[in-house]
Simulated scan of single mutants.
Amino acid sequence: MKNRLRELRAVRRWSQTDLADRLDVSRQTIYAIETGRYDPSLPLAFKIAAVFGEPIEGLFFPDDEDTDSTT
């Protein structure tokens, strides 16, 4: 899953630690989400959306490989 966390965080001039503190998670969790190594749980995705004031679907979207091109 791809996401816009790094982009939105940069606009606000937040470090990964700043965002992690706002979400009550580790900086490593933010890094893993940003690099696509970890997909957040639904409750965490809602918290992330709330912090940025964006809908979840505006933050997260499937990789090209994740979509079924036969439909």
Rank of each mutant, 00 (worst) to 15 (best):
M1D: 08
K2H: 10
N3T: 15
R4I: 03
L5M: 12
L5D: 03
E7M: 14
E7K: 15
L8A: 09
A10Q: 11
R12A: 10
R12C: 11
R13W: 11
R13Q: 12
W14T: 15
S15M: 03
S15P: 07
S15Y: 07
Q16S: 06
Q16F: 06
T17L: 06
T17S: 06
T17V: 11
T17K: 09
D18R: 04
D18A: 09
L19T: 09
D21I: 06
D21A: 12
L23F: 03
L23V: 03
D24R: 15
V25T: 14
V25S: 11
S26P: 13
R27M: 12
I30D: 02
A32L: 08
I33G: 14
E34D: 09
E34R: 11
E34S: 08
T35N: 12
T35Q: 12
G36K: 00
R37K: 15
Y38L: 12
D39G: 06
D39H: 02
D39N: 11
P40E: 05
S41R: 15
S41V: 06
S41K: 14
L42I: 08
L44K: 02
A45C: 03
F46Y: 05
K47I: 00
K47F: 00
K47E: 00
I48C: 06
I48R: 03
A49I: 03
A50E: 02
V51F: 00
V51N: 00
V51Q: 00
V51D: 00
G53D: 02
P55Q: 10
P55R: 14
I56T: 04
E57W: 08
E57L: 08
G58Y: 01
G58S: 07
G58K: 09
G58C: 01
G58N: 06
L59K: 07
L59S: 03
F61T: 06
F61E: 07
F61R: 10
D64I: 13
D64G: 05
D64P: 01
E65V: 12
E65F: 12
D66Q: 09
D66V: 02
D66M: 04
D66P: 00
T67Y: 01
T67C: 01
D68C: 00
S69V: 13
S69E: 09
S69G: 00
T70N: 09
T70S: 10
T70P: 02
T71P: 07
